[in-house]
């Protein structure tokens, strides 16, 4: 395969930081704005594609890309057979349990039965299991904060970077259920058949992240 590694980048909040990191690390000199017009850019060192964040693990697991950058929160919900190589530290956010202000749960008292609305059912299930709580999960696809206000659920398990959305919806954070940052993932065969290139990629990104030149501040 010519043209170096095939890399999948997630569109959305992590995209610009991911492009900057690849450029800073000398992996592929790409400017995020070039992807306004096309989804695939071939540089002399790598072929880079922009896909939906949830599709990054699919491209990588199926071997359509050798490696990809994706938020840990995406990996929680799509368990795919990939190697997770490096914590890239940008795109930091937290998965939290949020409850309406003034509710018993907001004061840390867990009621007998609980319904939680979430976009992250797998991570939420793991969190509640670790607490020994049998919670009924309601999977939603967006605006999870609305669910308690409308009586759909007692609480939410959702991603927050700043906490502003919780406050705006009169929710308070009860507990942290997980922390997410961007990760470098690799296809299982690419790690073996292109091991030198993949390990060099991992080392270059790790170096750049550690040196702090990638100052991505997250969404």
């Amino acid at each position: 395969m010519s043209g170096g590694l095939r890399l999948a980048l997630p569109g959305g909040a992590l995209f610009e930081d991911a492009c900057r990191l690849l450029s800073d690390a000398g992996v592929a000199d790409i400017d995020a704005s070039r992807f306004d017009r096309q989804l695939k850019i071939a540089t002399p060192t790598a072929t880079v594609v922009k896909v939906r964040p949830t599709d990054v693990p699919v491209y990588v697991e199926m071997g359509a890309c050798d490696a990809g950058i994706v938020g840990k929160d995406i990996l929680w919900e799509s368990p795919r057979d990939c190697y997770e190589l490096v914590d890239l530290h940008f795109g930091a956010c937290r998965l939290v349990l949020g409850a309406p202000q003034g509710s018993p749960l907001a004061e840390g008292r867990f009621p007998q039965s609980l319904r939680a609305a979430t976009k992250y059912p797998i991570a939420a299930r793991r969190f509640f299991d670790s607490l020994g709580l049998a919670v009924e999960l309601i999977k939603l696809h967006g605006s999870v904060e609305l669910a308690p206000a409308m009586g759909l659920a007692d609480c939410v398990v959702d991603i927050t970077a700043t906490g502003r959305t919780l406050i705006a919806n009169h929710l308070v954070e009860v507990a942290e259920a997980g922390r997410s940052t961007a990760r470098l993932i690799s296809n299982q065969a690419s790690l073996k058949t292109r091991s030198e290139a993949v390990n060099q990629l991992a080392a270059a990104l790790r170096r750049t992240v550690t040196a702090g030149t990638a100052t991505g501040s997250g969404p």
Binding site: M1, E61, G63, Q188, A189, K192, T193, R194
Partner: peptide, 11 residues
């Protein structure tokens, strides 16, 4: 052991 080909993303 596992067997790989450069042409495929799975063993």
């Amino acid at each position: 052991f596992e067997l790989f080909s450069a042409d495929l993303g799975f063993p």
